[in-house]
């Protein structure tokens, strides 16, 4: 049981806030991992700091891996045919992006820019493939979780597609 006096002390909170396990635990692909497994992941992730307005990934660059926002916020943008930037999303602390690049090297479909000074964790395909070979049990856990995330996203996309199709059908028959 947590000590009521020291349990929520400023020191512990600081330690906890800085604890990479806590941050990784928030990300769906790592949420099922035990602390020992998270320590293996911790060894292969990269922690970076980005200044406000600094690009994190550029649209069209070869995909290399995913990023998790530890602190700060990130804007996801794409360019239309005229070269105009269009904001797709603004991501807060704990959000992640670029996860599809863990599977292949296809060009990035959008750019990501830090909206404020941000602390970000990068998890990349070569390290992920290395993990899959060296620690297959752990690698498969992460892979399965990644498949779930992508599957869920595909399901939502399908639902949206059906809704749009239905709207189109209704407006067409009306």
């Amino acid at each position: 049981m947590e000590n009521p006096i020291w349990g929520d002390s400023i020191f512990k909170r600081k330690k906890k806030a800085d604890n990479i396990y806590t941050i990784l635990k928030q990300v769906p692909i790592f949420s099922e991992l035990k602390n020992k497994e998270l320590s293996e992941v911790e060894k292969i992730v990269h922690r970076r700091k980005y200044k406000k307005s600094e690009p994190i990934i550029n649209i069209g660059d070869p995909g290399l891996g995913m990023y998790i926002i530890v602190k700060g916020s990130v804007e996801i943008t794409e360019e239309d045919n005229a070269g105009q930037k269009k904001t797709l999303a603004k991501l807060p602390d704990g959000a992640f992006f670029g996860d599809l690049a863990l599977l292949d090297e296809s060009p990035r479909s959008a750019s990501a820019i830090a909206l404020e000074d941000s602390d970000i964790i990068g998890f990349f395909r070569p390290d992920f493939l290395d993990l899959l070979y060296k620690k297959p049990k752990l690698g498969i856990k992460v892979l399965l979780a990644l498949a779930k995330v992508i599957g869920e996203r595909l399901r939502r996309t399908n639902e949206l597609l059906v809704q749009i199709q239905q709207k189109k059908d209704v407006s067409g028959s009306g």
């Binding site: 060894k43 292969i44 990269h46 600094e54 690009p55 994190i56 070869p62 290399l64 990068g122």
Partner: peptide, 22 residues
Amino acid sequence: GRRFNRAFISKVPNKYFELSLN
């Protein structure tokens, strides 16, 4: 070896980070 690579890559500026890592 992996730690040496990470130490090197941590010194690379953000705009060359993915390129250097890849």
